[in-house]
């Protein structure tokens, strides 16, 4: 699949935002004496800001952004529609929660409930986002439960890392959060590992033979046109195997290994070093997530490419 910048930005930025919103809402509910309104402004500002950036970015992908409002109408059947609805709905409790925290310096009662509600909606929104992809049977690498799992874990991971960094930046250090983030790095790595293991090893869901109905030994003689077309540009994107391997390695280092080490460093140090290390962990992980998301698209083959003579699971070497 063509790794469109707008969609990568959409999923990674909104993932970060919803992850941060989730952790902020839960934190406010669980931890008494929530940090200062300034912290609230920073955390919720970044959360809603990145969510908004992501949502706006997704409209850049549209042929008709001005009609984007129509996208909320089909929530009964379309995950994209559900995502849109949930994203919009989430703004309501999130805004209420933010107003309470930032302007009224309160997070009790309805204010707190709104935080919890925001967190819940954030989860649902991320699930919807992931289901846009996971629901597509035509793209075997997407059509499995590891997609929502990794989307959720990656959102949580970036939320936790940024939350931890912010806490430290504002002097509200919580080693538990760092511990949680460290754990999340490990779990997210395992989930992604499982995703790759499954999708690399799954038997192809279809072959040129079943796509054409012509039997076991079918090769393409000629494509329909000698030039490119929309289908090939959008869904026939191919990444060379050696590039994919390099990028996976980069994603693992950037998203997991380096942030893990930095988290440990954060736990073992204090003060500026710890803060710096936490911020660095968040930034590097975020970069890794972008690489991971690029690969999520680039490595995904569409069964339509069978009609262009490609076998599933055989990236160009």
């Amino acid at each position: 699949m063509h790794p469109a910048g707008s969609i990568i930005l959409f999923t990674t930025a909104s993932g970060l935002g919803y992850g941060l919103l989730f952790i902020t809402g839960i934190y406010a509910a669980l931890v008494p004496n929530s940090p200062s309104p300034t912290f609230g402004l920073a955390a919720l500002g970044i959360a809603l800001g990145t969510v908004t950036l992501g949502l706006l970015s997704s409209t850049f992908h549209l042929g008709h952004p001005e009609r984007a409002w129509r996208a909320v109408s089909q929530w009964r059947s379309s995950w994209l529609s559900r995502e849109g609805v949930l994203a919009l709905v989430t703004y309501v409790p999130a805004a209420y929660f933010a107003i309470g925290w930032v302007f009224l310096d309160t997070d009790i009662g309805a204010w707190r409930t709104s935080g919890i509600l925001s967190a819940l909606l954030a989860v649902l929104t991320v699930i919807s986002t992931s289901m846009i992809y996971a629901s597509i049977k035509s793209i075997p690498r997407w059509h499995n439960c590891w997609v929502p799992a990794t989307y959720l874990l990656f959102a949580l991971l970036s939320g936790l890392l940024w939350f931890d960094a912010l806490l430290r930046l504002f002097g509200h250090t919580q080693q538990n959060i760092t511990l949680l983030a460290t754990g999340c790095v490990v779990v997210a790595l395992l989930a992604k590992w499982a995703y790759w293991r499954k999708t690399d090893n799954d038997a192809p869901v279809a072959t040129i033979g079943t796509a054409t109905g012509l039997g076991a030994k079918v090769t393409m003689l000629e494509p329909p046109h000698t030039g490119e077309n929309y289908l090939l540009k959008e869904m026939g994107f191919q990444i060379a195997r050696k590039h994919a391997v390099k990028l996976r390695r980069a994603a693992i280092f950037l998203t997991f290994l380096i942030p893990f080490c930095l988290c440990v460093l954060t736990l073992l140090t204090s003060g500026t070093t710890a803060t710096f290390s936490a911020i660095l962990a968040a930034i590097i992980a975020q970069t890794g997530i972008v690489v991971e998301r690029w690969l999520f698209f680039a490595e995904a083959q569409h069964v339509m490419s069978l009609y262009y003579g490609r076998e599933l699971g055989n990236e160009a070497s």
Partner: peptide, 12 residues
């Protein structure tokens, strides 16, 4: 149509 292309992704 908003041109989200999702239908083209969904069609095998």
């Amino acid at each position: 149509c908003i041109g989200c292309k999702l239908c083209s992704w969904a069609c095998p």
